[in-house]
């Protein structure tokens, strides 16, 4: 395996330092979004359980669903890394030019930046998990351990690469169209909803679950989260990571093709 080039370490180091220098943003984005999510899901599921009078929904207890509803958005944020503007802003304002001049691969540079963001959001995820486990305790039946956390985080890292290529393809539509904000919002919604970022995928209708098994979305949030919660064995983890690698390869090749076509269109015009 080829070692990471020194520029990649430097880019990651500088980006992590930059991210951590925005202390307010780090805590506000983490505490506020997690707190709101937790409160909303708590009252939502409370209403559902009170209204139906059931002890479980789709095999999940009230505590398990509240826990899931807090952890899933943290996983979604971690997988996404940087929220928006992976490359579309630079295409729009012409600042992509500088990356075309440097003797380094553009995708490698952007993936390194993305990895730095994933590192920061993963730290937020672990803090959120620790805070929840220490204050509310884990739901009954959960077997989260050091091993499952390692499997979950490694699956998350793989899923973040898949998400990177997915969003990169859509962001590169900016080579042809000026406003692609709606496309990115759509991607955000689709990956979050179909990835299990809102409710567990087992609550979806059976036919939809079967159809989604053929799509990359369940690997983005649901799979790493299930690994993290100790619901996936080593064999399941290996199959899932293999599927993520295959999807990443497909989307990576598409992204490369779009990049080559897109740079033919690039005019470098902007602000």
């Amino acid at each position: 395996m080829t070692a990471l080039p020194t520029w990649a370490w430097r880019v990651a180091d500088l980006e992590v330092r930059r991210l951590f220098s925005y202390r307010v943003d780090f805590w506000v984005s983490f505490v506020v979004s997690t707190g709101v999510q937790l409160l909303a899901s708590y009252f939502l599921w409370l209403a559902v359980f009170e209204h139906t009078g059931r002890d479980t929904v789709g095999g999940y207890s009230f505590q398990a669903l509240v826990y899931y509803s807090m952890m899933a958005p943290l996983f979604t944020r971690a997988v996404r890394g940087k929220e928006f503007g992976l490359i579309s802003d630079e295409i729009y304002d012409g600042s992509l030019s500088r990356f075309l001049l440097y003797p380094i691969p553009m995708f490698g540079y952007k993936l390194t930046l993305h990895a730095a963001h994933v590192g920061m959001t993963s730290l937020q995820l672990l803090l959120g998990f620790a805070a929840y486990a220490l204050t509310a305790g884990l739901p009954a039946g959960h077997t989260t351990s050091a091993g499952s956390i390692a499997l979950g985080l490694s699956a998350l890292l793989a899923a973040s690469v898949l998400h990177f290529f997915l969003s990169l393809i859509l962001e590169m539509v900016a080579f042809w169209a000026e406003g692609i904000w709606s496309l990115l919002v759509m991607l955000r919604f689709v990956t979050s909803f179909l990835g299990g970022g809102h409710i567990p995928l087992t609550l979806f209708p059976e036919q939809m679950q079967q159809a989604m098994a053929w799509l990359p979305f369940p690997y983005l949030v649901s799979f790493p989260l299930l690994c993290f919660q100790g619901e996936m064995g080593l064999a399941d983890w290996a199959i899932g990571v293999g599927a993520i690698a295959a999807w990443s390869l497909i989307f990576g090749l598409i992204a490369l093709r779009v990049w080559r076509k897109g740079t033919l269109q690039f005019t470098g015009v902007g602000m």
Partner: peptide, 25 residues
């Protein structure tokens, strides 16, 4: 290529860090 109308260095970084990064690049 130096473009007078476009900043090419990293806006948030000190110049010294930008140059170190360019050394690696």
């Amino acid at each position: 290529l130096l473009m007078g109308q476009k900043a090419q260095l990293w806006w948030d970084l000190p110049a010294g860090d930008c140059f170190e990064l360019l050394r690696d690049i």
